[in-house]
Design a protein around this nucleic acid. Sequence first.
DNA 1: GTCTATAAATGGATAGAC
DNA 2: GTCTATCCATTTATAGAC
Lengths: 208, 208
Amino acid sequence: MARDTRRRILDTALAMFNAQGEPHVTTNHIADELEISPGNLYYHFRNKDDIIEHLFARYEERMDAALELPSARLPGLEDIWLQLHLVFECIWDYRFLYRDLIEILSRSRRLRLRFARILRRADDSTQAVFQGLAQAGAMRATAQELGGIATNVLVVATFWLNYAAARGEKDEQLAIRHGIVQVMLLISPFLREAERTQLATLMQAYLD
Amino acid sequence: MARDTRRRILDTALAMFNAQGEPHVTTNHIADELEISPGNLYYHFRNKDDIIEHLFARYEERMDAALELPSARLPGLEDIWLQLHLVFECIWDYRFLYRDLIEILSRSRRLRLRFARILRRADDSTQAVFQGLAQAGAMRATAQELGGIATNVLVVATFWLNYAAARGEKDEQLAIRHGIVQVMLLISPFLREAERTQLATLMQAYLD
DNA sequence: GTCTATAAATGGATAGAC
DNA sequence: GTCTATCCATTTATAGAC
Protein backbone atom coordinates (compact mmCIF):
# COMPACT_ATOMS: atom_id res chain seq x y z
CA MET A 1 0.00 0.00 0.00
CA ALA A 2 3.04 2.30 0.28
CA ARG A 3 3.45 2.88 -3.41
CA ASP A 4 -0.29 3.18 -3.58
CA THR A 5 -0.50 6.01 -1.04
CA ARG A 6 2.23 7.88 -2.83
CA ARG A 7 0.39 7.52 -6.14
CA ARG A 8 -2.95 8.45 -4.56
CA ILE A 9 -1.44 11.63 -3.16
CA LEU A 10 -0.26 12.63 -6.61
CA ASP A 11 -3.60 11.76 -8.23
CA THR A 12 -5.62 13.61 -5.63
CA ALA A 13 -3.32 16.63 -5.62
CA LEU A 14 -3.62 16.88 -9.41
CA ALA A 15 -7.40 16.69 -9.29
CA MET A 16 -7.62 19.31 -6.54
CA PHE A 17 -5.10 21.66 -8.16
CA ASN A 18 -7.02 21.50 -11.43
CA ALA A 19 -10.39 22.02 -9.76
CA GLN A 20 -9.51 24.81 -7.31
CA GLY A 21 -6.24 26.27 -8.52
CA GLU A 22 -2.88 25.34 -6.99
CA PRO A 23 -2.70 28.36 -4.63
CA HIS A 24 -5.97 27.36 -2.93
CA VAL A 25 -4.96 23.77 -2.19
CA THR A 26 -2.78 23.19 0.87
CA THR A 27 -1.03 19.99 1.91
CA ASN A 28 -3.60 19.67 4.70
CA HIS A 29 -6.46 19.90 2.21
CA ILE A 30 -4.94 17.09 0.19
CA ALA A 31 -4.48 14.94 3.30
CA ASP A 32 -8.08 15.67 4.36
CA GLU A 33 -9.46 14.69 0.99
CA LEU A 34 -7.51 11.42 1.09
CA GLU A 35 -8.46 10.86 4.72
CA ILE A 36 -4.85 10.43 5.72
CA SER A 37 -2.89 12.51 8.22
CA PRO A 38 -0.69 15.49 7.27
CA GLY A 39 2.23 13.62 8.81
CA ASN A 40 1.64 10.73 6.46
CA LEU A 41 1.65 13.02 3.48
CA TYR A 42 4.96 14.50 4.63
CA TYR A 43 6.36 11.01 4.96
CA HIS A 44 5.90 10.57 1.19
CA PHE A 45 6.80 14.07 0.00
CA ARG A 46 9.17 16.68 1.39
CA ASN A 47 6.72 19.51 0.80
CA LYS A 48 4.10 20.90 -1.56
CA ASP A 49 6.63 21.89 -4.21
CA ASP A 50 7.92 18.34 -4.17
CA ILE A 51 4.44 17.13 -5.09
CA ILE A 52 4.24 19.72 -7.86
CA GLU A 53 7.64 18.66 -9.14
CA HIS A 54 6.53 15.05 -9.44
CA LEU A 55 3.31 16.08 -11.17
CA PHE A 56 5.41 18.17 -13.52
CA ALA A 57 7.48 15.10 -14.37
CA ARG A 58 4.31 13.26 -15.36
CA TYR A 59 3.22 16.25 -17.42
CA GLU A 60 6.62 16.50 -19.05
CA GLU A 61 6.60 12.89 -20.14
CA ARG A 62 3.09 13.22 -21.52
CA MET A 63 3.86 16.41 -23.44
CA ASP A 64 7.09 14.99 -24.81
CA ALA A 65 5.11 12.08 -26.21
CA ALA A 66 2.49 14.41 -27.70
CA LEU A 67 5.20 16.43 -29.43
CA GLU A 68 6.78 13.34 -30.98
CA LEU A 69 6.72 13.79 -34.75
CA PRO A 70 4.18 11.39 -36.28
CA SER A 71 6.39 9.46 -38.67
CA ALA A 72 9.07 9.51 -41.31
CA ARG A 73 6.66 10.38 -44.11
CA LEU A 74 5.60 13.93 -44.78
CA PRO A 75 2.84 15.08 -42.41
CA GLY A 76 -0.60 15.99 -43.68
CA LEU A 77 -3.34 18.16 -42.24
CA GLU A 78 -4.80 15.21 -40.34
CA ASP A 79 -1.50 14.66 -38.56
CA ILE A 80 -1.54 18.24 -37.32
CA TRP A 81 -5.12 17.82 -36.22
CA LEU A 82 -4.28 14.72 -34.21
CA GLN A 83 -1.18 16.24 -32.68
CA LEU A 84 -3.08 19.34 -31.63
CA HIS A 85 -5.60 17.10 -29.91
CA LEU A 86 -2.92 15.31 -27.95
CA VAL A 87 -1.34 18.61 -26.92
CA PHE A 88 -4.58 20.28 -25.87
CA GLU A 89 -5.67 17.23 -23.90
CA CYS A 90 -2.36 17.19 -22.11
CA ILE A 91 -2.71 20.88 -21.27
CA TRP A 92 -6.25 20.24 -20.08
CA ASP A 93 -5.19 17.38 -17.81
CA TYR A 94 -2.48 19.54 -16.21
CA ARG A 95 -4.27 22.86 -16.47
CA PHE A 96 -3.34 23.91 -12.93
CA LEU A 97 0.19 24.37 -14.25
CA TYR A 98 -0.98 26.75 -16.97
CA ARG A 99 -3.40 28.63 -14.74
CA ASP A 100 -0.62 29.88 -12.47
CA LEU A 101 2.28 29.24 -14.79
CA ILE A 102 4.52 32.19 -13.96
CA GLU A 103 3.88 31.91 -10.25
CA ILE A 104 4.69 28.18 -10.18
CA LEU A 105 7.79 28.59 -12.34
CA SER A 106 8.97 31.48 -10.15
CA ARG A 107 9.36 29.10 -7.23
CA SER A 108 11.69 26.61 -8.89
CA ARG A 109 14.65 27.18 -11.14
CA ARG A 110 14.49 23.54 -12.22
CA LEU A 111 10.90 23.78 -13.40
CA ARG A 112 11.71 27.03 -15.22
CA LEU A 113 14.43 25.32 -17.20
CA ARG A 114 12.33 22.26 -17.91
CA PHE A 115 9.32 24.26 -19.06
CA ALA A 116 11.53 26.41 -21.29
CA ARG A 117 12.88 23.20 -22.81
CA ILE A 118 9.37 21.99 -23.57
CA LEU A 119 8.55 25.29 -25.25
CA ARG A 120 11.68 25.00 -27.39
CA ARG A 121 10.79 21.45 -28.25
CA ALA A 122 7.23 22.46 -29.17
CA ASP A 123 8.65 25.22 -31.33
CA ASP A 124 10.97 22.81 -33.14
CA SER A 125 8.18 20.30 -33.60
CA THR A 126 5.82 22.94 -35.00
CA GLN A 127 8.37 24.26 -37.42
CA ALA A 128 9.27 20.73 -38.55
CA VAL A 129 5.62 20.03 -39.35
CA PHE A 130 5.40 23.30 -41.28
CA GLN A 131 8.48 22.43 -43.25
CA GLY A 132 6.97 19.07 -44.06
CA LEU A 133 3.82 20.75 -45.33
CA ALA A 134 5.90 23.20 -47.34
CA GLN A 135 7.95 20.38 -48.81
CA ALA A 136 4.76 18.60 -49.83
CA GLY A 137 3.64 21.82 -51.51
CA ALA A 138 0.66 22.23 -49.18
CA MET A 139 2.02 25.31 -47.45
CA ARG A 140 3.80 28.38 -48.69
CA ALA A 141 5.70 30.82 -46.49
CA THR A 142 9.18 32.25 -45.99
CA ALA A 143 11.42 30.77 -43.31
CA GLN A 144 10.96 33.94 -41.28
CA GLU A 145 7.19 33.69 -41.55
CA LEU A 146 7.30 30.04 -40.47
CA GLY A 147 9.15 31.01 -37.31
CA GLY A 148 6.68 33.75 -36.50
CA ILE A 149 3.65 31.56 -37.08
CA ALA A 150 5.11 28.80 -34.92
CA THR A 151 5.56 31.26 -32.07
CA ASN A 152 1.96 32.42 -32.35
CA VAL A 153 0.82 28.80 -32.39
CA LEU A 154 2.65 28.23 -29.12
CA VAL A 155 1.21 31.33 -27.48
CA VAL A 156 -2.37 30.53 -28.45
CA ALA A 157 -2.07 26.86 -27.48
CA THR A 158 -0.35 27.62 -24.17
CA PHE A 159 -2.78 30.28 -23.00
CA TRP A 160 -6.01 29.42 -24.73
CA LEU A 161 -7.61 27.88 -21.64
CA ASN A 162 -6.72 30.96 -19.61
CA TYR A 163 -8.23 33.17 -22.27
CA ALA A 164 -11.42 31.11 -22.32
CA ALA A 165 -11.63 31.34 -18.52
CA ALA A 166 -11.04 35.11 -18.49
CA ARG A 167 -13.68 35.47 -21.17
CA GLY A 168 -16.12 33.64 -18.92
CA GLU A 169 -16.48 30.55 -21.09
CA LYS A 170 -18.34 27.87 -19.13
CA ASP A 171 -18.40 24.83 -21.43
CA GLU A 172 -14.84 23.64 -21.10
CA GLN A 173 -14.96 20.85 -23.64
CA LEU A 174 -16.23 23.33 -26.22
CA ALA A 175 -13.43 25.68 -25.19
CA ILE A 176 -10.82 23.03 -26.07
CA ARG A 177 -12.30 22.44 -29.50
CA HIS A 178 -12.49 26.18 -30.05
CA GLY A 179 -8.81 26.43 -29.14
CA ILE A 180 -7.83 23.83 -31.69
CA VAL A 181 -9.77 25.70 -34.36
CA GLN A 182 -8.07 28.98 -33.41
CA VAL A 183 -4.65 27.39 -33.83
CA MET A 184 -5.66 25.98 -37.20
CA LEU A 185 -6.80 29.47 -38.17
CA LEU A 186 -3.24 30.67 -37.68
CA ILE A 187 -1.96 28.22 -40.24
CA SER A 188 -4.84 28.49 -42.69
CA PRO A 189 -3.75 31.60 -44.67
CA PHE A 190 -0.48 29.92 -45.62
CA LEU A 191 -2.06 26.78 -47.02
CA ARG A 192 -2.59 26.01 -50.68
CA GLU A 193 -6.16 26.66 -51.86
CA ALA A 194 -7.11 22.94 -51.82
CA GLU A 195 -5.92 22.41 -48.26
CA ARG A 196 -7.49 25.67 -47.09
CA THR A 197 -10.98 24.69 -48.20
CA GLN A 198 -10.45 21.19 -46.80
CA LEU A 199 -9.48 22.74 -43.48
CA ALA A 200 -12.44 25.13 -43.50
CA THR A 201 -14.79 22.16 -43.88
CA LEU A 202 -13.07 20.25 -41.08
CA MET A 203 -13.30 23.23 -38.75
CA GLN A 204 -16.93 23.92 -39.53
CA ALA A 205 -17.92 20.34 -38.77
CA TYR A 206 -15.80 20.35 -35.65
CA LEU A 207 -17.49 23.24 -33.90
CA ASP A 208 -21.03 21.87 -34.21
CA MET B 1 -1.10 64.33 3.36
CA ALA B 2 -4.17 62.07 3.66
CA ARG B 3 -4.92 61.88 -0.03
CA ASP B 4 -1.22 61.62 -0.55
CA THR B 5 -0.80 58.53 1.63
CA ARG B 6 -3.67 56.84 -0.10
CA ARG B 7 -2.14 57.56 -3.49
CA ARG B 8 1.31 56.48 -2.33
CA ILE B 9 -0.07 53.17 -1.10
CA LEU B 10 -1.55 52.52 -4.53
CA ASP B 11 1.65 53.57 -6.34
CA THR B 12 3.87 51.46 -4.12
CA ALA B 13 1.57 48.45 -4.23
CA LEU B 14 1.54 48.59 -8.02
CA ALA B 15 5.32 48.79 -8.21
CA MET B 16 5.76 45.91 -5.78
CA PHE B 17 3.09 43.73 -7.40
CA ASN B 18 4.72 44.23 -10.78
CA ALA B 19 8.22 43.55 -9.47
CA GLN B 20 7.54 40.53 -7.26
CA GLY B 21 4.15 39.21 -8.32
CA GLU B 22 0.97 39.94 -6.42
CA PRO B 23 0.98 36.69 -4.38
CA HIS B 24 4.38 37.52 -2.88
CA VAL B 25 3.46 41.02 -1.69
CA THR B 26 1.59 41.26 1.61
CA THR B 27 -0.05 44.32 3.11
CA ASN B 28 2.76 44.34 5.69
CA HIS B 29 5.38 44.41 2.95
CA ILE B 30 3.68 47.40 1.36
CA ALA B 31 3.51 49.21 4.69
CA ASP B 32 7.18 48.40 5.37
CA GLU B 33 8.27 49.73 1.99
CA LEU B 34 6.34 52.96 2.59
CA GLU B 35 7.60 53.17 6.17
CA ILE B 36 4.09 53.44 7.51
CA SER B 37 2.36 51.11 9.95
CA PRO B 38 0.09 48.24 8.90
CA GLY B 39 -2.71 49.93 10.84
CA ASN B 40 -2.31 53.05 8.77
CA LEU B 41 -2.58 51.08 5.57
CA TYR B 42 -5.79 49.49 6.84
CA TYR B 43 -7.15 52.92 7.65
CA HIS B 44 -7.01 53.75 3.94
CA PHE B 45 -8.04 50.39 2.47
CA ARG B 46 -10.32 47.69 3.80
CA ASN B 47 -7.95 44.90 2.73
CA LYS B 48 -5.53 43.78 0.05
CA ASP B 49 -8.27 43.05 -2.49
CA ASP B 50 -9.53 46.59 -2.00
CA ILE B 51 -6.13 47.88 -3.07
CA ILE B 52 -6.17 45.60 -6.09
CA GLU B 53 -9.67 46.77 -6.98
CA HIS B 54 -8.55 50.40 -7.00
CA LEU B 55 -5.50 49.55 -9.09
CA PHE B 56 -7.81 47.72 -11.45
CA ALA B 57 -9.94 50.85 -11.80
CA ARG B 58 -6.84 52.79 -12.89
CA TYR B 59 -5.95 50.04 -15.31
CA GLU B 60 -9.48 49.94 -16.67
CA GLU B 61 -9.54 53.66 -17.38
CA ARG B 62 -6.15 53.48 -19.08
CA MET B 63 -7.10 50.49 -21.25
CA ASP B 64 -10.44 52.03 -22.19
CA ALA B 65 -8.56 55.07 -23.45
CA ALA B 66 -6.10 52.91 -25.38
CA LEU B 67 -8.95 51.06 -27.08
CA GLU B 68 -10.65 54.28 -28.18
CA LEU B 69 -10.91 54.23 -31.94
CA PRO B 70 -8.51 56.79 -33.42
CA SER B 71 -10.90 58.94 -35.43
CA ALA B 72 -13.83 59.13 -37.80
CA ARG B 73 -11.67 58.56 -40.86
CA LEU B 74 -10.68 55.10 -42.00
CA PRO B 75 -7.73 53.72 -40.01
CA GLY B 76 -4.40 52.96 -41.67
CA LEU B 77 -1.56 50.66 -40.67
CA GLU B 78 0.07 53.42 -38.61
CA ASP B 79 -3.07 53.77 -36.52
CA ILE B 80 -2.93 50.09 -35.64
CA TRP B 81 0.74 50.41 -34.83
CA LEU B 82 0.07 53.29 -32.46
CA GLN B 83 -2.88 51.60 -30.82
CA LEU B 84 -0.90 48.42 -30.25
CA HIS B 85 1.76 50.48 -28.53
CA LEU B 86 -0.74 52.05 -26.19
CA VAL B 87 -2.24 48.67 -25.36
CA PHE B 88 1.07 46.91 -24.76
CA GLU B 89 2.35 49.75 -22.60
CA CYS B 90 -0.81 49.59 -20.53
CA ILE B 91 -0.39 45.84 -20.10
CA TRP B 92 3.24 46.37 -19.17
CA ASP B 93 2.38 48.98 -16.53
CA TYR B 94 -0.20 46.64 -14.95
CA ARG B 95 1.55 43.37 -15.69
CA PHE B 96 0.92 41.98 -12.20
CA LEU B 97 -2.71 41.64 -13.26
CA TYR B 98 -1.78 39.54 -16.29
CA ARG B 99 0.81 37.47 -14.48
CA ASP B 100 -1.78 35.99 -12.10
CA LEU B 101 -4.88 36.83 -14.10
CA ILE B 102 -7.05 33.80 -13.38
CA GLU B 103 -6.10 33.73 -9.72
CA ILE B 104 -6.88 37.42 -9.21
CA LEU B 105 -10.15 37.22 -11.13
CA SER B 106 -11.15 34.12 -9.15
CA ARG B 107 -11.29 36.20 -5.97
CA SER B 108 -13.73 38.83 -7.19
CA ARG B 109 -16.88 38.50 -9.22
CA ARG B 110 -16.78 42.22 -9.95
CA LEU B 111 -13.29 42.10 -11.45
CA ARG B 112 -14.27 39.06 -13.49
CA LEU B 113 -17.15 40.95 -15.07
CA ARG B 114 -15.10 44.08 -15.63
CA PHE B 115 -12.22 42.20 -17.24
CA ALA B 116 -14.61 40.30 -19.47
CA ARG B 117 -16.09 43.63 -20.53
CA ILE B 118 -12.63 44.94 -21.47
CA LEU B 119 -11.99 41.81 -23.55
CA ARG B 120 -15.28 42.31 -25.37
CA ARG B 121 -14.45 45.94 -25.95
CA ALA B 122 -10.99 45.03 -27.26
CA ASP B 123 -12.61 42.50 -29.56
CA ASP B 124 -15.06 45.07 -30.90
CA SER B 125 -12.31 47.63 -31.35
CA THR B 126 -10.08 45.15 -33.19
CA GLN B 127 -12.84 44.06 -35.52
CA ALA B 128 -13.81 47.69 -36.19
CA VAL B 129 -10.25 48.48 -37.23
CA PHE B 130 -10.20 45.41 -39.48
CA GLN B 131 -13.44 46.46 -41.11
CA GLY B 132 -11.98 49.91 -41.67
CA LEU B 133 -8.97 48.37 -43.39
CA ALA B 134 -11.22 46.12 -45.45
CA GLN B 135 -13.38 49.07 -46.46
CA ALA B 136 -10.27 50.96 -47.55
CA GLY B 137 -9.32 47.93 -49.63
CA ALA B 138 -6.16 47.30 -47.63
CA MET B 139 -7.37 44.04 -46.11
CA ARG B 140 -9.28 41.11 -47.49
CA ALA B 141 -10.99 38.46 -45.38
CA THR B 142 -14.43 36.98 -44.73
CA ALA B 143 -16.43 38.18 -41.75
CA GLN B 144 -15.80 34.82 -40.08
CA GLU B 145 -12.06 35.10 -40.65
CA LEU B 146 -12.08 38.63 -39.20
CA GLY B 147 -13.65 37.33 -36.02
CA GLY B 148 -11.14 34.53 -35.70
CA ILE B 149 -8.15 36.78 -36.32
CA ALA B 150 -9.41 39.31 -33.78
CA THR B 151 -9.62 36.57 -31.15
CA ASN B 152 -6.06 35.47 -31.85
CA VAL B 153 -4.92 39.07 -31.63
CA LEU B 154 -6.46 39.30 -28.17
CA VAL B 155 -4.90 36.05 -26.97
CA VAL B 156 -1.41 36.96 -28.16
CA ALA B 157 -1.60 40.52 -26.80
CA THR B 158 -3.04 39.43 -23.47
CA PHE B 159 -0.53 36.67 -22.77
CA TRP B 160 2.55 37.72 -24.68
CA LEU B 161 4.41 38.94 -21.59
CA ASN B 162 3.68 35.66 -19.82
CA TYR B 163 4.94 33.74 -22.80
CA ALA B 164 8.13 35.80 -22.91
CA ALA B 165 8.66 35.20 -19.19
CA ALA B 166 8.07 31.44 -19.49
CA ARG B 167 10.46 31.37 -22.41
CA GLY B 168 13.09 32.97 -20.21
CA GLU B 169 13.27 36.27 -22.08
CA LYS B 170 15.30 38.73 -20.04
CA ASP B 171 15.19 41.99 -22.01
CA GLU B 172 11.68 43.12 -21.27
CA GLN B 173 11.60 46.17 -23.51
CA LEU B 174 12.62 43.97 -26.42
CA ALA B 175 9.92 41.52 -25.41
CA ILE B 176 7.26 44.22 -25.78
CA ARG B 177 8.44 45.15 -29.25
CA HIS B 178 8.56 41.49 -30.19
CA GLY B 179 4.97 41.13 -28.99
CA ILE B 180 3.79 43.98 -31.17
CA VAL B 181 5.47 42.39 -34.17
CA GLN B 182 3.86 39.03 -33.41
CA VAL B 183 0.43 40.64 -33.39
CA MET B 184 1.14 42.39 -36.67
CA LEU B 185 2.19 39.02 -38.07
CA LEU B 186 -1.32 37.76 -37.39
CA ILE B 187 -2.80 40.47 -39.58
CA SER B 188 -0.15 40.44 -42.27
CA PRO B 189 -1.42 37.56 -44.47
CA PHE B 190 -4.74 39.30 -44.94
CA LEU B 191 -3.28 42.57 -46.16
CA ARG B 192 -3.06 43.71 -49.76
CA GLU B 193 0.38 43.21 -51.29
CA ALA B 194 1.35 46.89 -50.98
CA GLU B 195 0.47 47.07 -47.30
CA ARG B 196 2.12 43.72 -46.59
CA THR B 197 5.49 44.83 -47.88
CA GLN B 198 5.10 48.16 -46.11
CA LEU B 199 4.43 46.27 -42.89
CA ALA B 200 7.36 43.91 -43.42
CA THR B 201 9.68 46.92 -43.69
CA LEU B 202 8.21 48.53 -40.58
CA MET B 203 8.62 45.32 -38.56
CA GLN B 204 12.18 44.74 -39.74
CA ALA B 205 13.24 48.23 -38.72
CA TYR B 206 11.39 47.88 -35.44
CA LEU B 207 13.20 44.83 -34.15
CA ASP B 208 16.71 46.27 -34.60
C1' DG C 1 3.62 3.60 7.00
C1' DT C 2 0.61 5.96 9.54
C1' DC C 3 -1.07 8.53 13.32
C1' DT C 4 -1.52 12.45 16.93
C1' DA C 5 0.01 16.50 18.56
C1' DT C 6 2.10 20.50 18.07
C1' DA C 7 5.77 23.86 16.97
C1' DA C 8 7.10 27.78 14.20
C1' DA C 9 6.14 31.17 10.97
C1' DT C 10 3.31 34.04 8.34
C1' DG C 11 -0.38 36.94 6.78
C1' DG C 12 -4.68 39.40 7.37
C1' DA C 13 -6.88 42.33 10.13
C1' DT C 14 -8.42 45.15 14.33
C1' DA C 15 -8.45 47.85 18.93
C1' DG C 16 -7.28 51.62 21.10
C1' DA C 17 -3.79 55.25 22.26
C1' DC C 18 -1.92 59.49 20.45
C1' DG D 1 -4.27 60.04 10.16
C1' DT D 2 -1.05 57.46 12.18
C1' DC D 3 1.08 54.35 15.44
C1' DT D 4 1.75 50.28 18.65
C1' DA D 5 0.39 46.12 20.00
C1' DT D 6 -1.80 42.17 19.26
C1' DC D 7 -5.16 38.63 17.89
C1' DC D 8 -6.79 35.17 15.02
C1' DA D 9 -6.58 31.94 11.32
C1' DT D 10 -3.92 29.46 8.28
C1' DT D 11 -0.07 26.86 6.55
C1' DT D 12 4.05 24.41 6.67
C1' DA D 13 6.52 21.17 8.73
C1' DT D 14 8.36 18.03 12.41
C1' DA D 15 8.69 14.88 16.67
C1' DG D 16 7.61 10.88 18.53
C1' DA D 17 4.18 7.13 19.56
C1' DC D 18 2.15 3.02 17.48
